[in-house]
């Protein structure tokens, strides 16, 4: 198992959004497009850039220590 990569890990952007707003978001009550917009707003990153480390996405960034501070 020595060559099994152990550098896997990202943050849940939906949880990041809830931390930013400091409340639970009823995601299933939103349409898919609304969910994407909410992620963009709360994570301060365009939706299609959120999921690649080649962008400045909080999904791959430092741990947030409070609402609105991702990096």
């Amino acid at each position: 198992m020595d060559d099994m990569r152990c550098t896997i890990g990202v943050r849940n952007p939906f949880a990041l959004a809830e931390l930013k707003e400091n409340r639970r978001i009823e995601w299933k009550e939103l349409e898919a497009g609304e969910r994407r917009e909410r992620l963009e707003l709360d994570c301060e990153c365009s939706y299609d850039k959120l999921f690649s480390p080649q962008s400045d996405s909080p999904v791959f960034g430092l741990i947030p220590d409070g609402a609105g501070r991702w990096k």
Partner: peptide
Amino acid sequence: AWTYESENAAPAQVIYDNDALVANHS
């Protein structure tokens, strides 16, 4: 299962641009 660390690490041409397929994710 787990995805590649980034697009550059994948042998094929891939784009991680939606929450169903996220780079470096389990």
